[in-house]
């Protein structure tokens, strides 16, 4: 690359235009894919597939738009640990409701339900 030297910054990595546009295109294609997939009934794989596509999009945004791939590893660790705690939070809550919700409903004398 001849213009590599001009497109340099002393404080941080400069994202090439090609990469920015490539990621933008990939995000649009994946958005189309997730809408298209949703028009088909895949039973219990519906949710997992939608989440997989969303996660791929999120990883693209984080790695390239947010420069995480070229950033200090420490920032990535902070971010990923945060995500792990979110997963822990959601899984434990879902596990708990999955195990005890039916019992709660059975034991309740009257269950308040909103219309």
């Amino acid at each position: 690359m001849t213009d590599n030297h001009d497109h340099h910054n002393e404080l941080a990595h400069v994202m090439p235009v090609k990469v920015l546009l490539g990621v933008f295109g990939a995000l649009l294609v994946l958005t189309g894919a997730t809408v298209w997939v949703a028009t088909h009934d895949l039973g219990r794989f519906d949710l997992s597939l939608a989440l997989i596509i969303a996660t791929v999009k999120a990883v693209l945004v984080a790695l390239y738009f947010m420069h995480l791939r070229y950033d200090k590893v420490f920032n990535a660790i902070v971010f990923v640990v945060g995500i792990l705690f979110v997963i822990l939070f959601i899984s434990l809550a879902v596990m708990d409701t999955g195990n005890y919700q039916s019992q709660l409903l059975r034991n309740a004398d009257h269950v308040i339900r909103y219309r």
Partner: peptide
């Protein structure tokens, strides 16, 4: 799509400032 476009232009704004 609109939000993804805004993310692109924001990432591009960083590039412009850096250069």
């Amino acid at each position: 799509a609109v939000l993804i476009l805004s993310s692109l232009t924001m990432a591009w704004a960083v590039r412009c400032a850096q250069l």
